[in-house]
Computed example of a mutant assay.
Amino acid sequence: MTRFFFSACIAATLTVALSPQAHAWGPLGHRLVGHLAQSQLSPKARAEVARLLQGEADPTLAGIANWADELRGNDPGLGRRSSPWHYVNLAEDGCRYEATRDCERGDCVVEAIRRQRAILADRTKPDAARAQALKFLVHFVGDVHQPLHAGHAANRGGNDIQINLDGKGSNLHRLWDSELLATAQLSEPEWLKRLRALPSPRDTGTEPARWAEASCRVVLREGMVPPRAKLGQDYVLRWRPVAEDRLRSAGHALATLLNDTLK
């Protein structure tokens, strides 16, 4: 059995216990990734995205970016099945991905991205299937760029690391999901302006294993997992720019993947 903590016979029972690890960036972060990617789509990709998402309340990448996290309430069956697809645990092995070891039965974010990309690329598939694949991809590319979605199995991606930031109790995963961003007190348009002003990210291709390994390496940086529970603004000032860089990279990676898939 790999480090997907539970065997198949009890996985369904423990879905609730695993569910905190299925969130990355929170709604704002995922929308930001969608916005960043949308503005970098090629004309062909933009047209196909618009066609597949027609009928959605907000037919944009940002508008459907949180769909996969909302499944647990809207489609519990698919939500349970897809719960392991949001993350992969690499930190125990030096951030080197091996599918047979790290992704038992293909249930991890790396293989989920590969599968959903194949569905989206197959124009013989029904539009409904391809639209669903697009929704998964937008979310999972965001997920795989959140460092703790490629972290340690032993602490459930930081969910088991309790922290206190300026007197407020939380855990490390939740801090990186949304609370680091919240400390900036910016609106969504202000965040977009801030992220777009960052240097253009290095092109990381379309291989999700490389994205996961890069996220994992952030987890292994000294001080990312704090040595003490009580944190202050020094942690925020050091690590919020890293979170911003990961969001910027996620938007670029998503656009690159969609442009290549929908060419």
Rank of each mutant, 00 (worst) to 15 (best):
H149S: 15
R130C: 01
K168D: 14
E111V: 05
D107R: 12
T124N: 11
F140H: 13
V109K: 04
D58Y: 04
E111T: 02
L71S: 01
P59I: 02
A45Q: 04
Q132Y: 02
G77N: 09
N74T: 13
G169S: 15
D75S: 08
I113L: 07
R123K: 12
P126T: 06
G77L: 13
N89L: 00
A57G: 06
D93T: 11
E98G: 05
A133S: 10
Q146G: 11
V144G: 00
D102K: 00
A50H: 03
P147S: 13
R72A: 07
G106C: 03
A62L: 03
G63Q: 02
Q54V: 08
C108T: 05
H152Y: 15
V109S: 08
N74F: 09
G169E: 15
R130M: 10
L71Q: 01
A99I: 09
S170N: 15
A45Y: 00
P43F: 10
N89A: 09
N171H: 15
G142A: 08
G73L: 04
N74P: 04
Y87V: 03
P76T: 11
R46T: 03
P147C: 11
A121G: 12
N66E: 10
G63A: 10
A154M: 12
N155F: 10
S42Q: 01
H152W: 10
G55A: 09
E98W: 01
I113W: 01
A121E: 14
L172Q: 08
R123M: 11
I113Q: 02
R123L: 12
G106L: 13
R80T: 07
V141W: 06
N164Y: 13
E104S: 09
Q132L: 13
A68H: 05
Q54H: 11
E104Y: 07
V144Y: 00
G169L: 13
Q116D: 14
G167R: 14
C95M: 02
E56W: 07
G169K: 14
E111G: 04
N89H: 06
K135D: 02
P59S: 02
K125R: 15
E70G: 03
A118L: 09
E111Q: 11
H152M: 14
A128Y: 04
E56I: 05
P59H: 04
A129C: 08
E48Q: 11
R81A: 12
S82Q: 02
T60D: 07
T60C: 05
R72T: 04
N89V: 06
H152P: 04
G167D: 14
G63H: 07
R115P: 09
F140G: 00
R123Q: 14
L53H: 00
V49Y: 01
Y87G: 01
C103T: 01
I119A: 06
L120Q: 03
L78M: 07
R174P: 02
L61H: 07
D122C: 14
R96V: 08
R101A: 08
F136K: 03
R105Y: 11
C108M: 06
P84E: 00
N159A: 14
A133R: 00
G94F: 13
N159W: 05
A99W: 05
